[in-house]
Simulated assay, not measured.
Amino acid sequence: MSDSLPFWKRKSLSAMTRAEWESLCDGCGRCCLHKIRDDETEEIHFTNVACRMLDTQGCGCRDYANRKDHVPDCVQLKAKMLPALDWLPPTCAYHLLARGGDLPEWHPLVTGDPESVHRAGISVRGRAVPEREAGALEDHVVEWPGRWPARSRKGGRAPRAAGSLGRKAG
């Protein structure tokens, strides 16, 4: 493949450097929202309740390097894990690339602007409730984090890839 292509189009997820891997995160914060798995159906339900480490305005972890010290069950994503994960938001770059898709037009690697994810309405900014203020998770079940917006605010459509990009979450 041509070296003129961006790294995410010429490298597999497992071949990326740590810096390339980390740069795939668009900073939306959706993966840092609490989820509830239905014991009977196994269905995933997103909530709008943010992990206590998520800065709900900046949409980044308050202590990313040491997050597992604060939240022991925080998941450190790895390429080999991606096929089995059913709780990543459909807009997630890791999710999209693992299924043969591309980065969406509002992704900061495409736009060169870390604010583009917020302007496109993809992030949790203005929609997340801090964990310490939330109360019962069941009272905060929402659909938007588990769905791809029909159109981003910039008019883009969801990128398509081989296989389903849909989610079971309601």
Rank of each mutant, 00 (worst) to 15 (best):
L77V: 02
A93E: 09
A169S: 15
L97A: 06
N48I: 06
S12A: 15
H140L: 05
R18Q: 09
S4P: 06
L33C: 01
R167D: 08
L97N: 03
L5I: 01
R119K: 12
H34C: 12
S116V: 03
D102I: 03
P130F: 03
P114W: 02
G146A: 08
T91Y: 01
A93Q: 07
E138Y: 05
S116I: 02
R99W: 10
T47A: 10
R153D: 06
P83I: 01
L82Q: 01
L54T: 01
T41V: 01
W144I: 10
A19G: 07
C74T: 12
W106D: 01
A161R: 06
R151M: 12
W144T: 12
P114G: 03
A120M: 09
P114K: 04
M81W: 10
R132K: 15
G27L: 04
A161S: 15
H45F: 09
G155D: 08
H118T: 15
Y64C: 10
E138T: 11
V75K: 14
L96A: 13
V142R: 14
N66F: 10
P149G: 04
P83L: 00
H140V: 05
Q76H: 14
S12P: 07
H70M: 06
A84S: 15
M53C: 11
V75G: 09
T41I: 01
S23C: 02
V49P: 00
G100E: 15
E42I: 10
S23E: 02
S123D: 02
K168H: 13
L85H: 06
R52F: 08
R52C: 13
L33H: 00
D38R: 10
A50N: 03
M53D: 11
E40S: 12
G27D: 05
G166W: 09
D102N: 09
Y64L: 12
P114I: 03
C74W: 13
L13Y: 00
L54K: 00
E115A: 14
C32I: 03
G146C: 04
I44V: 15
N48F: 08
P104R: 07
R157L: 13
D26R: 02
E43Y: 03
P108H: 04
R62Y: 11
P108T: 06
V129E: 07
G27M: 05
K154S: 13
W8R: 00
V49T: 05
P145F: 07
R147Y: 09
S152Q: 08
H95D: 14
V142Q: 15
W8G: 00
E143H: 11
